[in-house]
Computed example of a mutant assay.
Amino acid sequence: MSYYKKMYLYKDNRNMEVVIRNYDENDIPQLIEVQKASFPPPFPSDLWWNEEQLRNHISLFPDGALCVEVGGMIVGSMTGLCVDFDDKHIQHTWEEVTDNGYIRNHNPNGNALYVVDICVHPGFRKMDLGRWLMQSMYEVVVQLDLDRLIGGGRLPGYHKVADKITAEEYVDALMKGKYNDPVTSFLLRCGRTPVGVIADYLEDEESVNYAALMEWRNPFKVTNKK
């Protein structure tokens, strides 16, 4: 399956051509530069994509390797793999579920698309490109007839209140609108809903190593409509 979507979005007092498509090996240098700009310190630099990881994404699961271009320049990406997800066992680490970003554990017969990463260059975030990437990956879920999209969302605002409330209480407060978190609040606006909280998900000082496990259910496969 090949993915290609073209649209026009507003930036700098004009409409600009935006393309969302599968990335390939020619895009690797740009993808790495976008990672560096999107995740500055204190985010660990060893978690930025390397060439081998990106080549694996392209060869093992090209359907889950999307990038977004503005004016012909790559400014964001989103990557996933297929897993066989079990609601009864939600505790895991990012490294375990993504094979440390190499996705050699991609399961073509899995029931869910797991988000490995999403990033948008800071200079282009007001264009809502993250939401468009997420919407595009929802379309991949539907096309592949998977049950859901799922993945861990960082909690970069949690360190500010970690001495007062638990991570579970923080996510509950986000749901009620008491706090606004750069990542999890964005995922809520994209239509994803919390499944639970994962401890020691990722070495992430801002999130105190926690993540909110967030899902989007394929609306064509939802059996409980209450």
Rank of each mutant, 00 (worst) to 15 (best):
A211N: 05
R189K: 13
N100Y: 10
A65S: 09
F186R: 09
L149D: 06
A199W: 00
V83N: 00
G130D: 01
G76D: 09
M134T: 11
P44C: 01
R55E: 03
P29E: 10
V83W: 11
K225E: 10
T193N: 04
E206I: 00
R192P: 02
V19Q: 03
K5H: 15
I32H: 09
Q35M: 12
E95C: 14
M16S: 13
S77E: 15
I165W: 05
L149E: 14
K5E: 12
T193A: 02
I103G: 03
L149Y: 04
P44I: 00
K160S: 06
E139G: 10
D117T: 09
L146R: 02
P40K: 08
K221R: 12
I32M: 14
P182F: 07
D99I: 15
E205P: 00
R154K: 08
H92M: 15
Q53L: 04
V70S: 07
E203Y: 06
N22T: 03
E139M: 13
L174W: 06
W94I: 13
Q35H: 12
E96S: 15
R189M: 08
L81P: 04
E139L: 11
V208F: 02
L133E: 08
K225F: 14
K225P: 03
M127D: 08
P42L: 00
M78T: 09
D84N: 13
E205T: 10
P44W: 01
K221V: 07
H106S: 14
C119I: 10
I32R: 10
P62L: 04
K88N: 12
E51F: 00
V70H: 04
D163R: 15
N224Q: 14
I165R: 01
N56V: 01
S185D: 09
G196E: 09
V115G: 11
